[in-house]
């Protein structure tokens, strides 16, 4: 069985998704959570392009991917501004110490 380039991209989408999920689970730093979100969105962009390409509608996938890139950048900007403000107000970026629900 030989792999086509589309199969390789599909494996890449799954791999980036896994790394992003793991980052969301394993990190406690607010800025690193934004990094994990960025990796997840990169996987989504790659998936959109792959889907458009497989259905023969590359331009549709491309225009949707551009919308996702814009939304993702806005999310990163807002998240980082939030992290800066949290650091100024609480003096830490640790998610555990920000939480008010104690175990």
């Amino acid at each position: 069985m030989t792999f086509s380039a589309a199969n390789v991209v599909a494996v890449g989408v799954l791999g980036l998704l896994g790394v992003g999920f793991y980052g969301l689970l394993a990190t406690r730093n607010l800025i690193k959570v934004v990094v994990a979100l960025q990796i997840l969105v990169k996987s989504a962009i790659l998936g959109l392009i792959l889907a458009g390409y497989l259905r023969g509608q590359v331009v549709l996938g491309a225009s949707l991917a551009i919308t996702v890139i814009v939304a993702d950048t806005i999310v990163a900007v807002i998240g980082l501004a939030l992290a800066v403000q949290v650091r100024r107000k609480f003096g830490t970026l640790d998610l555990r110490s920000l939480s008010t629900l104690r175990r």
Partner: peptide, 20 residues
Amino acid sequence: LAGTSALVALAIFVMGAPEV
């Protein structure tokens, strides 16, 4: 993360969507 982004952009270019 910037390196990941550059490589994903390269993959997208090879797949035929240079604008993205």
